[in-house]
Design a protein around this nucleic acid. Structure first.
Lengths: 355, 355
DNA sequence: ATGAAAGCGCTAACAA
DNA sequence: TTGTTAGCGCTTTCAT
């Protein structure tokens, strides 16, 4: 037998308050009460088939009555599956170290839905990359999760590649570079950028600017697409790096617009949020949208339909993306393969452009 | 075995590499390599003081070199502390079972920051209450977390009270009812409601409506405050229940406004989001804000400053609230007490009212 | 259908 | 300073 009395007493001391009352904290406790073995209780509570219905119900009643829940840590350790998915948001190139990006948050919400649906818990981790891959391996290598989802590559593309080489149950939202190792779900940002610029040009814009910080790969790609479309049409497009933090963005944009107030008549915003900020700034400086300046966003967040005028934008399928990510992750957890998915962006016409 | 050759050429290489090498997955493996015992490795990796510096470095180097990380499940089981805080969002009275509320998401972001700062991981759970307290006890009673934060009481006030009676490390965002058991951090919603209505009235509004679904206790309280202020001033205030889901809100609000188009000149919106929706609807129906109708929001989310006109609103201190919640939770985990905190709301004047 | 027994990988009390 | 040892609470063969 395992339990020496004196030893137990010692370890009970610190938990005196717990120990005071009825003490039903382990399978063994329930087992004693039910007059069966711990193994049987385990099977009964897990709903295994090979338990007598009558005993099972008796055990379950007992458990309910005592508010007993099996310790998950023990269960997970033994069964070698955690039922938890780690969701990591790398805050690499962002100035403010804060999860505030509405796009990420929206995606996170949908991921929470999908994962819950599939019976997984979600462990959220705000990661601040430090030059090593530690921020990621902390999740992947800890035995805490069955799989990991990364929201946005930030400037950590290479680190992710490295880890993905040996850690399979990993799915990433973001940019797809051809030949890459890690499984990614995302939007064709270059096509999105093209779509945006082209739409503006077709709607009559003749001088464009692209508003957004291109140090992350996704927005850089949007810029590339926009630039390509502009060049093809022979329309000039300049780039103004607008930071991501909401507060400072207004002045930043105002400065940018003032500086280049030479007949800009079309703005490609890297995100809806930036577009919204630009919208306000233009309004304040007395320019009308879309008459004086047309503006197009990216993402199609719910609030894009709520601005005034409502925002024409390039839509990313966030909810669908979340579902696809979870599907792929589950496949990978099961040891199957799963390829990357690049979704087509879609132009959503609203009133901020004349298209 | 999982690896079929034909499936995924890419996946075979990395897996081979993992499988091929010496499989260093446990403390014992490292111990063997270092020629010491598992206990010593444990101490070395945990940075315990009583290990020879030289051995410690040798062990750490070995661990690093093999990419070894101690299994957290085992560690947590043994040490009886998980380093994880559960964050639960009860979706009780909401129509759509989806975490989308920007206020919650914003609070969640700040909580993630604060918890990370304090060295905790965050386990997110979307809970759909089913009439029992299971959605909560699933977290509290599982040994998975050291403490729990609930974002919003929804319509589960009593369930939370019940659980809080026996589970100490629990802090809730929401409404504070006097004499309640559970530790809550939140805003004085009644004062906020009063503030909102009073501001509108002082700014000249003479017929008010309150826009928002009052089945949650927080918004119900805001309504009560607004109603009290209106009555005191002898100004009529009617209530229109606007759902929370963004999509359907527009039509809902439009219908409401049409129906009671009898000189409404002031709108108390239960949240900024509702206010934003109302703003749009009013614009579409040709009424100008604040000239024809004044409107005030609640929350002061970042986007309140971005609407057109910028939204006058009742500010809740979200970031501060998050910090206070985490402080209190940590105290409770340590076995100390922590009292509820009701923060004062603050009027933020912008252009959607004439005040 | 149930019990007994052997750990999952780690930590910590105790001994040396 | 280090090794030894006894579990943390559960799941899962292997017997019966």
């Amino acid at each position: 037998m395992a339990g020496h009395n004196d030893r137990d007493r010692r370890s009970d001391a610190p938990r005196a308050e717990t120990g005071a009352r009825g003490e039903v904290r382990t399978l063994a406790d329930i087992a004693r009460l039910a007059g069966v073995s711990a193994g049987t209780v385990s099977r009964a509570l897990a709903g295994k088939s090979l338990v007598n219905v009558e005993t099972r119900e008796r055990i379950r009643a007992l458990a309910r009555q005592h508010g007993f829940r099996p310790n998950q840590m023990a269960s997970k350790l033994r069964s070698r599956r955690t039922g938890v998915i780690g969701v990591v948001i790398p805050l690499g190139h962002e100035k403010r170290q804060h999860i505030s990006d509405p796009f990420f948050l929206t995606l996170l919400g949908h991921l929470a839905d999908e994962l819950t649906e599939s019976g997984y818990d979600l462990m959220l981790s705000r990661a601040i990359p430090d030059g090593t891959s530690d921020w990621l391996e902390r999740m992947t290598g800890s035995g805490m999760v069955d799989g990991v989802i990364i929201i946005g590559q930030s400037n950590q593309f290479d680190v992710i590649e490295l880890v993905a080489a040996t850690y399979r149950p990993l799915v990433v939202w973001g940019h797809c570079r051809k030949g890459q190792t890690h499984c990614v779900v995302g939007t064709d940002n270059e096509a999105g950028g093209r779509l945006a610029a082209r739409h503006l040009i077709e709607a009559g814009a003749r001088r464009l600017i692209f508003l957004g910080d291109t140090s992350g790969i996704e927005i850089a790609t949007r810029f590339r697409g926009a630039a390509a479309a502009a060049q093809q049409a022979g329309v000039p497009l300049s780039h103004v790096s607008a930071g991501l933090a909401g507060e400072e963005m207004g002045p930043q944009i105002r400065a940018a617009l003032a500086e280049m107030d030479l007949g800009i008549d079309g703005i490609v915003a890297a995100t809806d949020l930036i577009a919204m900020s630009a919208l306000r700034t233009l309004h304040e400086t007395g320019r009308s949208v879309p008459d004086d300046v047309q503006i197009i966003g990216f993402d199609d967040l719910p609030l894009a339909a709520q601005t005034m005028p409502p925002l024409t934008t390039i839509r990313q399928e966030i909810a669908l993306g979340a579902r696809r990510m979870v599907e792929r992750l589950k496949a990978r957890i099961e040891g199957e393969g799963a390829h990357s998915l690049v979704m087509e962006p879609r132009l959503v016409r609203r009133a901020s452009t004349r298209g």
